[in-house]
Simulated assay, not measured.
Amino acid sequence: MSRVKVAVNGYGVIGKRVVDAVRKQDDLELVGVADIVTDYRIKTAAILGIPVFAAAPEKATEMRSAGIPVAGTVDELLSRVDVAVDCTPKKIAAGNKARYEKAGIKAIFQGGEAHALTGHSFVAQANYETALGRSMTRIVSCNTTSIVRTLTALKKAGLLKRARGTLIRRASDPWESHLDGILNTVVPEKVIPSHQGPDARTVDPDLDVVTIAVKAPENISHLHTWWVELTRSSTKEEVLAAFRAAPRIAFVRMEEGVTAINSTKELMSDLGRSRADLYEVGLWEDVLTVERNEVYYTYQVDNQAIVIPETIDAIRALAGIEKDAMKSIEKTDRALGVVKEFLQIEKEKAEAA
């Protein structure tokens, strides 16, 4: 079977991670990336041997003058691929839709765009099958991805009735923290519910979910706290089993020294993760509490990484090369090193020690 040819439009926070993930899949082929910048970000791509195309024809000369080996225009890139993953800045992607349609290729957009742009929003474990063969889909935001992952786990276990969550959001992406952010304050979002709850229902309309968000003076990641009403009385063991059975949820524990969001990111770095990326929902196992038919839990969302596995699965779904959601999820996760337990030592190693 020939590999699906992929273009990534936009080599920023998400785009560069999508590029790395595509290159790790044996059924996908990265043809090139497109951008308009001339700084270190796109120069890094060229150094890594990734073909670079000008996302705007008028930028090609400027990019070449900066020493970037421009392979052609974005339209030339699109003429060579099956699927485009649009990782351009928020609201710019919508203007690219017509370009992908003209090229006759599939397209994937990120969560900064509206659901109406594609009419379909994607989280692999919840609605992979509905994306099969579609021309376009949208990967929901990092926070929405985490919401759908965790609530779908409870729903599939027959436990979910309704959910209410508070999101403590990072102030900016790390690479641009010198440009903006907040200091010595916490900023509540003025609209309740915040957009993540309604966005989760674009994936699963049956979810009874409300979210409240505040912005905090840090840029490591997001933190969620949740109260969920269950369909019946349950136990901590049953709830943990539901999360454990779901993909892309991994446990962290206070008792192991993972006591804050910086601890988790440091753990990812120590484990050798590229860019210290946390692809999983990092859920605190020893914080989770169950009281009869109510469960309370806290987890971490890496805003730069959590949507990367979903994007890879979306490529397969649109291209139609894998019909089974779990087979695609398992393939993606194996290539990216996604796990259920970060600190699980193999029995043989423990006994040898």
Rank of each mutant, 00 (worst) to 15 (best):
P89G: 14
L179P: 03
I312L: 03
T235L: 11
T145N: 13
P205W: 06
I212Y: 07
T185C: 14
A103E: 09
T289P: 03
P89N: 14
L154S: 07
K97V: 07
K331V: 11
L336Y: 00
G158C: 05
G282P: 01
K323E: 05
L77I: 11
T202G: 01
V228W: 00
Q196W: 02
T225A: 13
V252D: 01
A56K: 13
A213V: 07
G15N: 13
R170I: 10
R169N: 15
L288A: 12
S177M: 14
A98S: 12
V214I: 11
K265V: 08
V6G: 08
I329G: 04
D199E: 08
G15W: 09
V19R: 06
I312A: 01
D277C: 08
N96R: 09
M326E: 10
Q344K: 11
D270F: 04
H224M: 12
T259F: 11
V210C: 12
V148M: 06
R3S: 09
I14F: 07
L343V: 02
G165K: 03
G272Q: 05
T144R: 01
I329R: 00
A163P: 00
T73Q: 06
R41D: 13
V281K: 00
E341T: 05
I47H: 10
L77G: 07
L240E: 13
T231M: 07
I315W: 02
I249R: 00
N127T: 06
E285M: 04
A153M: 14
Y128V: 02
D86Q: 04
T88G: 13
T311S: 06
A350P: 02
A246H: 03
D324M: 04
I321H: 04
S141N: 02
R244T: 12
T152I: 10
V85F: 14
E229K: 09
T144K: 01
H224R: 11
T235M: 10
A94K: 04
V338S: 15
S269F: 12
Q196K: 02
P51F: 08
D204H: 01
P69Q: 11
D173E: 12
V4K: 01
R316P: 07
E237R: 02
A200Y: 08
I261G: 08
P205S: 15
H120S: 07
R334I: 09
N9I: 15
L179I: 14
D324H: 08
N127W: 07
A314Q: 02
P193D: 12
D27R: 11
A60L: 10
N184I: 07
W284G: 10
H115C: 11
Y297Q: 07
T44S: 15
K16M: 14
L77A: 10
V186P: 05
T202S: 03
K347C: 09
Y128D: 04
I108Q: 00
E310V: 06
G337D: 07
L336I: 06
L78Y: 03
L154R: 08
Y40S: 12
T332F: 01
A94Y: 06
Y100Q: 09
N262A: 15
D313E: 15
Y279V: 13
E29R: 15
D20Y: 13
K215W: 05
T289R: 12
G133T: 05
D204L: 04
Q300A: 09
C142V: 12
V52W: 02
K106Q: 05
G49D: 13
A126H: 00
A153K: 01
G95N: 05
G111K: 00
G49N: 15
T225V: 14
E256L: 09
